[in-house]
Write a protein that binds this DNA or RNA. Structure first.
Lengths: 275, 275
DNA sequence: CAAAATACGTAACATACGATACAGCGCTCC
DNA sequence: GGAGCGCTGTATCGTATGTTACGTATTTTG
């Protein structure tokens, strides 16, 4: 079975004329970068003419050059998605329990944070901590618990933290209280919920700043969001994993808490006394 | 020092107008693949117009779009050359600008699973999957969202999954429905809640099998529990972390789902049709 | 609240890119 | 050694792509 273009080339290079073979070897030599450049550059690097390059990709079975490039890109994307772990990694020191689920989850988290700058987290934390207005949180079918989790913590260190629960009509009515000084934290991963998108749009129209937790494919809500956190969700399971988003949420909770010191600490003490 | 375009973006995303920020977020979310495609595709993916994309790359300091793409390609090429660096590259180890929070969380998960045998997880999964009786879930102040999360999934693949919400009196009344064929999943970490302990004790007296998610110091409920999952919770933050427990929960959800195949799959399909 | 500044999208433009037709050259096989 | 075939490069064409100018909407500032 042939799964990559490199294998495809290796398979057919024997039956290629000289010029195309040079093209093939050039591509293999610095696979796959040359193939992502223009026909002109490719041909120059291989020392052949552009039509030869085009005949080369045609022989590989592609209709045209862009199609060939897309194929290369997809291959690359697939490689980048699954970090080196699979290529060469003994299941982890410590007699790895071998739970592929755990390994995938850890990868997801590393990957998620790799695409997430400290700066961005700090910006969001500041926005949540300055509390010029209220903070609303809501989530989808499976992610609403994350919204609750975050709300449970934030509500302790500052006032005006509201988790939007219950039916759609319930939260829609809360829109009336939401304005441009407020922040709305939304969790929405595939399959994205129309009701949430609608709600986000309305909130956005009212000037509410939206912080979106979503997956790497970005919920449509990203269009209205001021801040977008894209977490990796793929795991070897029937379900998507929200673990990476959960960790980001915890990190954010920690950052907000730190920013609210020492006020937050005082507030916590007061709260303890009230029990 | 800024060495990658991703860092460059992270550095400047704060001072970007809304449209360009969307472009930035879209690029980061599937870094760097979108940037290798055409301006039209990029703009469509980001939901903005092509000029916005061009202004975005201009703001990053590139003269034109092709120059930007070349830069991305060079970066990719460098990454592909040395796969070793890619495994644990991001910031240097030890010097870690990277959130110590993340590192601690990852350690917690590894530690948690190291003390958790596959056998134990499989046993619990079996118990939850055989559904001779009902499954009840409940959590504490901060962990109840985990109970909800688990309930949301389990309820889809099998009937009689009940999340106990609301006030203490509410769930105490549900005790009447609970018997020795039923399972109670409890989440309880420091500071352990008396109300939960009391509830667990009563349930235990009625013969309910208890599955406890707790921290490494073990909630008093462990005395009544049939299965105890002890997760690490310590992180450099004002709060404890429930992330490790969250991952165990997800793993368990996955295991139960697998055991219920293909019945679960059929049930999911039926459910989809009902919407 | 008014006015200025900034940001965004629409539409027209020019360029550069991929595609194609055709002619020259070398190679193979009678 | 000559005729035929196949491979390759040059030159040209159409088009998709990146670019720019301008008008409108939105936000910011006094």
């Amino acid at each position: 079975m042939i799964s990559s273009i490199a294998e495809l080339i290796a398979d057919r290079i024997g039956s290629m004329p000289a010029g195309e073979r040079r093209a093939a070897q050039t591509l293999i030599a610095s696979y796959p970068m040359i193939g992502l450049k223009t026909v002109a550059e490719f041909s120059a690097a291989a020392g052949v003419s552009s039509p030869t390059i085009l005949r080369f990709v045609a022989r590989l079975g592609f209709q045209n050059y862009p199609e060939f490039q897309s194929s290369l890109q997809d291959e690359l994307a697939a490689q980048l998605q699954s970090p080196a772990i699979r290529t060469l990694n003994p299941p982890s020191p410590g007699g790895g329990t071998a739970s592929p689920m755990l390994e995938a989850t850890l990868d997801n988290m590393r990957e998620t944070f790799r695409h997430l700058s400290d700066r961005q987290l700090a910006d969001i934390a500041t926005r949540l901590a300055e509390r010029r207005g209220k903070t609303f949180l809501i989530g989808g079918r499976f992610t609403d618990p994350l919204a609750r989790y975050m709300a449970a913590h934030l509500a302790i260190i500052q006032p005006d933290v509201i988790h939007l629960a219950g039916q759609e009509s319930m939260w829609r009515d809360r829109l009336i209280d939401m304005g441009k000084r407020d922040v709305l934290v939304i969790f929405d991963i595939r399959r994205y919920q129309d009701s949430l998108v609608r709600f986000a749009e309305k909130a956005h129209q009212r000037g509410v700043q939206i912080v979106l937790f979503t997956d790497q494919w970005l919920s449509p809500i990203a269009r209205f969001a001021r801040h977008v956190i894209a977490g990796r969700t793929a795991v070897p399971s029937a379900w998507d994993s929200s673990a990476a988003l959960f960790v980001v949420a915890e990190t954010l909770i920690g950052a907000v808490t730190r920013q609210l010191e020492p006020d937050g600490a005082r507030r916590i003490r007061e709260m303890e006394e009230l029990r």
